[in-house]
Computed example of a mutant assay.
Amino acid sequence: MTRVLPDTLPRHVQVQQRIQTMLRRAEVVPGDRIPSERELAEQLGISRMTVRRAVDHLVKVGVLERDSTAGTRVSQPKVQRVLGEERLNSLTQMVAATGGVPGGYVLSFEQTVATELLSEHLQVALGTPLFKIKRVRLVDHVPFCVETSILPAEVFPDLSADDVDGDHSLYQVLEQRYGLQVGVGESRISVAQVGTEEAAVLRLPETSSVLVFRSTVRDQQGRPFEYLYSVNHPELVTFSFNAHK
C-alpha cells in the first residue's frame, strides 16, 4: 500500500527522516542496502526526484554510501570512540586511527564560573573561573559531534579559541604548553533527544536521539582538569570498551 507523507515538512526532509528512522530502529544495519529510489518513491507516494534529493543529502553527510554495482548502503560508522584505555587518547587521534581526516571549529569560547555540579566534578570551589569551549568535530569534513570542554582557567592561563580551532588537539596543546600528562577519568554514555543547535550542526531532525558522552577527565596524578559533555551523531559514531585485566 502506498503511504502518503504529511505536509508539515518539505518532502525531501521527510524522506531523510524516514530513512534515519529505519536506521535508529535497526531495520537496516551498516553494510545493508536500503530500498531503491523507485521502491521508496512507491512506498511513500512521492517522486523519485524527491527521493534522490534526500538520498543525496544523506550520502553527503556520511550516513549512506553509493556503490556503483550494489546500490545505496548504510555507511559503516565513521568514528570509533574507544573507552577504557590506560591513557586517554584525544578525539583527533581516534579519528585519524580509523582512517578519517580530523577537523573542527569553535562554536564558542567563553569564561564562566563553577556551579555546584562543576565544582564537584572539577574539585574546585564554587565560583572558580572556568573556560567553556564548545566545538564541532569533523571527520572527512562531516560533523559528527558537538563537544563542550570545561577547564579551570587558572590552571591553563592564556588558553584561547585559536589554540583549539581546526584539527588542533586540545590535549596536545595542554601537554605541550602546560606540561599536562593526560590520564583517564570517569565516563558515562546515555541517549537523549537532540537539542535545536546540535540538530542543526549535525544535520539531524529535531526528533532524533543522540549519544551523549559525559566524562570527568584526570591527569596521570589523578587530578581532574576537564569536564566533558559530547553530543554524538548516532549513525556516525560508535563507542567501544577496551577492558584491561
Score class of each variant (00 low, 15 high):
Leu126Val: 12
Val139Tyr: 02
Gly103Ile: 09
Lys132Cys: 14
Leu151Ser: 07
Ile133Val: 14
Lys134His: 13
Leu117Phe: 06
Pro152Lys: 10
Leu122Tyr: 01
Ala114Val: 07
Val142Lys: 13
Asn89Cys: 02
Thr112Pro: 05
Glu116Ile: 11
Ala114Asp: 04
Ser90Trp: 05
Ser119Thr: 08
Leu122Gln: 03
Tyr105Gly: 12
Gln123Gly: 01
Gly99Phe: 05
Asp140Gln: 09
Met94Gln: 15
Leu151Tyr: 07
Leu126Arg: 12
Leu91Thr: 08
Ala114Leu: 07
Arg135Lys: 15
Ala97Met: 01
Val139Lys: 05
Gly127Lys: 10
Pro129Gln: 09
Ile133Pro: 02
Val139Arg: 06
Leu88Ile: 01
Val142Thr: 13
Val113Gly: 03
Val95Pro: 00
Ser108Leu: 12
Gly100Ile: 03
Leu117Val: 12
Glu147His: 08
Pro102Thr: 04
Pro129Phe: 12
Ile133Asn: 01
Lys134Glu: 15
Leu151Thr: 07
Gly104Gln: 10
Glu110Thr: 15
Pro143Gln: 07
Gly127Ser: 10
Glu110Ser: 15
Lys134Ala: 15
His121Lys: 15
Pro129Asn: 10
Ser108Gln: 14
Cys145Trp: 00
Gly99Lys: 05
Thr115Phe: 02
Lys132Ala: 14
Gly99Cys: 03
Glu147Pro: 01
Val136Asp: 07
Met94Ala: 10
Asp140Ile: 07
Val139Gln: 02
Val113Trp: 01
Pro129Ala: 13
